[in-house]
Design a binder for these strands. Structure first.
Length: 368
RNA sequence: GCUGGAAUCGUCUAGCGGCAAUGACAAGAGACUGUAAAUCUCUCGCCUUCGGGCUUCGUAGGUUCGAGUCCUACUUCCAGCA
């Protein structure tokens, strides 16, 4: 069983430590999205230096390239990527939702590689097998996102996710070996419907799993209420991961406040590559002409490598000239920004200043 | 000096009698939430009540219902010959 110590609680919010075979994660924590076993534009050293505690890779992408057996041969994801810290894998379930030309059945999903058109199949069992081969510390159950926002489709997706969860749990047990222990999170579905979310949380809570992913969340609207419903039902002593949310700082505050322990999101690094950079006053587009002569740091009081050494004018220049370093420095900053926001959330929960921190941060960031 | 060739939106470029005029780049802005994303979208002569109106293709004339496209002269540039 995955060891999770809760140090402090405040209603649904909690501060804790997830103990994985590759190290501890002090929660709440922002987990870097390393889809293809790399955080785009960043080295693992840069990730460590900016304060990241864990990374999350994607089973779908790693099946296509380089193949999960190769990662196993390399000694597992942490060794292969030289991350050497706690790792998560997403199941590939999200790709069912996001990719075209997938054939979904009760058994699983058939799809063609977007790289060379070759045929693949992913089932709850094969996803578990792939994740065991990849060797991340924490695996996500193979889930199914709804094809639309309707209650009917959400309910269908939820029931399929539950049926697949049972198969994931069985396969996960079967795959347990003498090697380093690996852990399974169930994934809660149900969209924006609180009745479905409650049903899904109850179902997932009843299973022998190590923690929970909360999936199918795409906007901040209604998220806090949904999380209150879900996290009031999920057992307190197991960690909860909010899947894919964290591009907007408000998501991190609402997530932590309502009982989520870890987050991952591609937004910060994608924004970075596209020149949209976080500041305390909201995101700015560094490519805009007004920054050409701005010789101040991107963000005052930021101790990331980018802000400590470079000016907005320089970053503007790097983006205008399409230099690789533009993406590197921007990614360092944006990733550091979200990691440190969650780190400070953690500290503020410990010293009971969360509400003040949240209000001050969000009012400045969103200019309210 | 002679003989060819060429001048189109910031730059390069398409255009061969019906055209506010092609494409690329540059420029201006926007989007992005479990990454087919170092990607995508919009604007890019002037004005607009978004119907349209006005002025444009080196300069000045001409032919034509109609000219960036054909003709003449001039200007500038390129190539070859002197």
């Amino acid at each position: 069983m995955l060891k999770f110590d809760i140090e402090k609680k405040n209603n649904l919010a909690r501060v804790g430590v997830i103990h994985t075979p590759h190290g501890d994660i002090h929660t709440p924590a922002f987990v870097g999205a390393a889809t293809r076993a790399t955080v785009k534009a960043l080295t693992m050293k840069e990730m460590r230096d900016l304060g990241s505690q864990a990374i999350l890779a994607n089973t779908y992408h790693l099946i296509l390239r380089p193949g999960v057996d190769l990662i196993k041969e390399a000694g597992g994801l942490a060794e292969f990527s030289s991350w050497h810290g706690p790792t998560f894998t997403d199941s590939g379930g999200f790709q069912i939702f996001s990719l075209p030309d997938v054939k979904i059945s009760e058994d699983g999903v058939k799809f063609k590689s977007h790289i060379d058109g070759s045929k693949f199949e992913l089932t709850p069992e094969s996803s578990m097998q792939a994740q065991w081969a990849i060797g991340a510390d924490i695996h996500m159950a193979f889930d199914h996102l709804a094809k639309s926002e309707s209650h009917e489709d959400m309910e269908i997706a939820m029931h399929r996710t539950h049926a697949w969860l049972d198969r994931c749990v069985a396969e996960h047990k079967r795959l347990k070996s003498d090697g380093p222990e690996q852990f399974l999170y169930a994934v809660v579905q149900g969209g924006t419907f609180l009745d479905l979310r409650a049903a899904s949380a109850k179902y997932c809570a009843s299973k022998e799993v190590d923690g929970f992913g909360i999936g199918g969340v795409f906007t901040a609207d209604g998220m806090a209420e949904m999380l209150q419903t879900v996290n009031s039902i999920l057992p307190e002593n197991k960690p909860r991961h909010l899947l894919g949310m964290g591009q907007e700082p408000i998501d991190l505050f609402n997530g932590a406040e309502n009982g989520c322990d870890t987050f991952d999101c591609v937004g910060p690094t994608r924004m970075a590559r596209n020149g949209s950079l976080y500041t305390y006053d909201g995101r700015i587009n560094i490519k805009n002409a007004k920054y050409a002569h701005d010789f101040t740091p991107l963000m005052e009081d930021c101790d990331c490598e980018c802000c400590k050494n470079y000016t907005r004018a320089y970053l503007h220049h790097l983006f205008r000239t399409d230099e690789i370093t533009a993406k590197v420095l921007a990614s360092i900053h944006n990733e550091h920004f979200v990691v440190s926001v969650v780190d400070i959330i953690r500290e503020s929960l410990l010293d009971d200043t969360f509400s003040e921190y949240k209000d001050a941060f969000l009012s400045r960031y969103y200019h309210k």
